[in-house]
């Protein structure tokens, strides 16, 4: 049996951490796009469509991410569609992220004074024009801190995909542990790597929020 040095362990974990990063980015970007579409439908769509997107958001916020992963992985299998773990992981995380981002952003849009909608409407703008030129430029500023803050949840959420066999940081941790019998070292390192990914995000979210509050108070 080959001996694993500390550096071997670290190297293996870091290599796997790349997939955590990739999965986080895909979830965040994909979730952002789907979330933006949900937001537009949730606020300005017809009544039926509004209800539909609200239902979607509540469904994904009201069930554990783990169940969503299982459903994406095993559920499609029932229909004879063979879903690789990476695909199921991406799909579930994108849909989950979208629901949360849409809800965060809705709060930001609703924090914009009603008078902004009325003034832009009275000037003849349609819904999409109001959103594009008046509401979103203002809401975006408010949205940055909570959005960056939520990205931490996305990074941590990727850990669950180890359960369906996607080899990211957590899964690599258990594989390396099985080979080395040094769980404390391995999981300690895993935790540190997660922390190194998440801490800058939550810290910058805090800083952005403070900066924004100061800017608000000056108004």
């Amino acid at each position: 049996m080959t001996e694993f040095s500390f550096w071997d362990i670290l190297r293996n974990l870091l290599l796997a951490a790349r997939w955590t990063v990739v999965l986080s980015l895909v979830s965040f970007i994909g979730g952002g796009i789907v979330g933006a579409a949900l937001l537009f439908l949730r606020i300005g769509g017809r009544r039926g469509i509004q209800l539909l997107s609200r239902g979607y958001i509540q469904l994904f916020q009201g069930t554990p991410l783990l169940m969503q992963l299982f459903l994406a992985f095993f559920g499609l299998g029932l229909f004879g569609i063979d879903v690789p773990a990476w695909l199921a992981a991406c799909v579930a995380l994108v849909l989950w992220t979208a629901a949360f981002l849409a809800e965060i952003w809705r709060g930001c849009v609703e924090s914009i004074a009603k008078g902004q909608w009325e003034a832009s409407a009275s000037l003849g703008m349609g819904y999409l024009q109001q959103m594009r030129y008046v509401i979103l430029p203002q809401a975006l500023k408010v949205a940055v801190p909570p959005t960056v803050g939520f990205s931490v949840q996305v990074v941590k959420g990727t850990a669950l995909t180890s359960i369906i066999g996607f080899v990211e940081l957590s899964k690599a941790g258990s594989i390396v542990t099985n080979a080395t019998f040094q769980p404390f070292t391995v999981y300690g390192l895993v935790a540190l790597i997660y922390f190194a990914l998440c801490w800058p995000l939550s810290k910058s979210s805090q800083l952005l929020e403070r900066k924004l509050n100061v800017a608000h108070r000056n108004h």
Binding site: A113, E118, L123, M125, V134
Partner: peptide, 29 residues
Amino acid sequence: RLKVGMIFQQFNLFPHLTAGGNVMLSQMV
């Protein structure tokens, strides 16, 4: 709305645009 304009008690200027930008926006859009 192109025939009747409206002025509000609370002004409702677009805070992210300059005075000029406020007057230009709806013309362009």
